[in-house]
Every structure is written in C-alpha cells, then in structure tokens.
Simulated scan of single mutants.
Amino acid sequence: MLVLGEVLTSLLPTSAAVPADAAQRMLGLTAGAPVIRSDRPISYVVSPERLEGVDCQVPAALDRGVRGIGTVATRAVLTGGHAFQASARTVAERSRYSRRVLWSHYLARPGTLQIIGRYQEEAMAAAFLAGAPKPSGLDLTPIAERTAIRARSGVQLARKVAVPSDRITLRWAALLGAGEEELHFRVDSPLHRTVRIATSACDLADVVTLCESLALHDWLLTTLEAILSRAPLTGPSEGAVVDRIQPAVDHLLHLWTPGFRLSRGARDLWDRLDRLAGFDHQWHTSVNRIRDHMAVSTLRERDRPGVPR
C-alpha cells in the first residue's frame, strides 16, 4: 500500500503557550467528532480528520496519463501549546474503473486516492518526492494550509511570536507491507525535507504519527540551531546574548520528546534514523551549550562589582 503525505510545522503565533483546554476547543474542527488529547509527558492535542476531495494528475515518473480521484485526510496537531502542525495524507490505490464514477464511490473510501492509468507504487513514490507539484497535479500543501487556517481561526491568539522561526515542510511517501524496513530522510532545502519509508511493521496510523513526530523534532532542532547562529554564545554583552536565547529555553527545550506516542515498529525506524543522522546527539549538545553559557553568565553577573551576593 502506498501512502503520500505532507506535514507543515511552525510555531503558533502567540507569546504564551495555549492551555490544553483552549487547544482542545481550537482543534475541534468537526462537529461531533472527538479531539484526541494527552497531557503526559507534555500537552498533545490532535484534531479529528477532515476530508477534502481531489481530482488531479498524479506524479508517476514519465507517464503523464495517471489521474487520481478521491479524498485527502487532513488534521491539525498542537504540541506543548506552541508547536503547530497541519498534516495531510492519502492512500493511493488502483481504481477498478477506467473513468470517473459517482462521487459516492470515493466518499465510501475516505482518505483514498483512486488511480486511473498506470499504477506503479515505486515510481509514483519517487515522482511525488522528486519536485514541486505541477499546477494540475496532486498538491497536499494547500490542503494542509486550509486546515491550519481553520484551526487557528478557532481561538484568539496574541499574534506575538515567542521565538523567531520558519515553517518547514516535510513531504513523505510510505510503502506499507514492504519486506525490508527502510527510512530515508533528506534535507532538500532550508525549509523542505523529504522522507521515504518502507515498512511491514507499521500500519497507516503508525506511519502518520511517525512522520508528524519526525517533522516536529526536525523543526525543533532547526529552529534551535538558527537561534544559536543568530546569538553566538560569546560576545561583549552577556546580558544581550542571554536575552536572545531565553525564549528558546522557555518555549522549545521541553518539547523534545522523541519516541513518545510511537509504536514499537515506528520507534525502531526512528532509532535507526537517529543512529545515522544524530538528531538526539545534536539536540542535547546544543541544549548543554545553552545551559552552560547561562550558568556562566549567572556566575559572572554574581561576581560583578556592586552586585550583592
């Protein structure tokens, strides 16, 4: 089974973390559908899925006659009251028909894209990850963006960003039921990543959660490194440097929780990637640099003439 997805990760535009109760109201995107909420180890709120219909060309290597009709499932996730994600995904499967049929047929298969034309999973996954979508092609970004806009409109935000950061897009393709376990992560640009997964140990829900978790932790690491590059930990003004890195301490450091909410199979994939890419090592190295610098700054301030001990 081939699954195509995309995750947009950014910082919610507010100066303070959104309380879990407010986040639950914010992500109640579908009347009568439950919002998933967890308060341990940190606040984690997930909206119910919404469906959006599509009828488009599907990237499939050199074959331009591949058409996809169906629905895309999309949801929003808020972690720690600050890290906001909009996620979209669809399962691509071969259609039994050579033409478009009644829309009720597609609604009966939520989150599924029926492929009319040549259906080759490997080629379709590679083409989906290869480049920007064409105007008439499958594009999950605006679908995820509409979900993000709808979620953010459900709560009054301060519109004051706590930490300077960029939105990062992670596009992913997963082959479920594949024989060999694989996860390939690639940084295509400062604001775009691609992930290719092959697994027989994870189901659809596991893979969606894994990709959202990977997107979150890559965004956290990228944002923290950007803060450190803008505020080097040496300089003539200790107080100014501390002021610049303090928001990261207040709003980002506690969000690093890799492995939580992942199934055993998904956690094995994360651990395999981490051994190669060193996400966890790089994160803790950066955090220790920040904390050591702030400790030294505190000692220097204490020893400054005229400051009572």
Rank of each mutant, 00 (worst) to 15 (best):
residue 1 M to Y: 02
residue 10 S to M: 13
residue 12 L to S: 03
residue 13 P to R: 13
residue 28 G to H: 08
residue 31 A to W: 00
residue 35 V to R: 08
residue 35 V to I: 11
residue 39 D to H: 10
residue 41 P to L: 12
residue 47 S to P: 07
residue 47 S to D: 11
residue 51 L to R: 09
residue 51 L to G: 09
residue 55 D to Q: 13
residue 57 Q to P: 00
residue 62 L to W: 01
residue 66 V to P: 04
residue 68 G to R: 06
residue 75 R to C: 02
residue 78 L to S: 04
residue 83 A to I: 14
residue 83 A to N: 01
residue 90 T to C: 14
residue 93 E to Y: 05
residue 94 R to W: 11
residue 98 S to K: 06
residue 100 R to P: 03
residue 102 L to M: 08
residue 107 L to T: 09
residue 109 R to G: 09
residue 109 R to V: 06
residue 113 L to C: 03
residue 117 G to V: 13
residue 121 E to D: 07
residue 123 A to F: 00
residue 124 M to S: 01
residue 125 A to N: 03
residue 130 A to N: 02
residue 131 G to W: 03
residue 131 G to L: 06
residue 138 L to G: 06
residue 139 D to K: 06
residue 140 L to G: 06
residue 142 P to C: 07
residue 143 I to S: 07
residue 143 I to A: 04
residue 144 A to E: 01
residue 147 T to G: 14
residue 148 A to G: 15
residue 154 G to T: 13
residue 156 Q to F: 05
residue 157 L to T: 08
residue 158 A to M: 04
residue 159 R to G: 07
residue 159 R to K: 10
residue 161 V to N: 11
residue 162 A to L: 08
residue 165 S to G: 15
residue 167 R to K: 15
residue 169 T to S: 14
residue 172 W to N: 06
residue 174 A to G: 08
residue 179 G to C: 02
residue 180 E to C: 06
residue 182 E to T: 13
residue 185 F to C: 05
residue 193 R to M: 13
residue 194 T to P: 04
residue 198 A to N: 10
residue 202 C to M: 09
residue 204 L to F: 12
residue 205 A to W: 05
residue 206 D to I: 13
residue 210 L to H: 14
residue 211 C to V: 10
residue 216 L to T: 08
residue 221 L to I: 07
residue 222 T to C: 11
residue 223 T to P: 01
residue 227 I to A: 11
residue 228 L to W: 06
residue 229 S to L: 10
residue 231 A to Q: 03
residue 240 A to E: 15
residue 242 V to W: 00
residue 243 D to M: 09
residue 243 D to Y: 08
residue 243 D to E: 13
residue 245 I to E: 00
residue 251 H to M: 01
residue 253 L to F: 12
residue 257 T to N: 14
residue 259 G to H: 15
residue 260 F to T: 08
residue 268 D to T: 11
residue 273 L to K: 07
residue 275 R to M: 08
residue 275 R to C: 10
residue 276 L to E: 14
residue 286 S to Y: 01
residue 298 T to A: 14
residue 298 T to P: 01
residue 304 R to H: 08
residue 305 P to Q: 08
residue 307 V to G: 05
residue 307 V to Y: 09
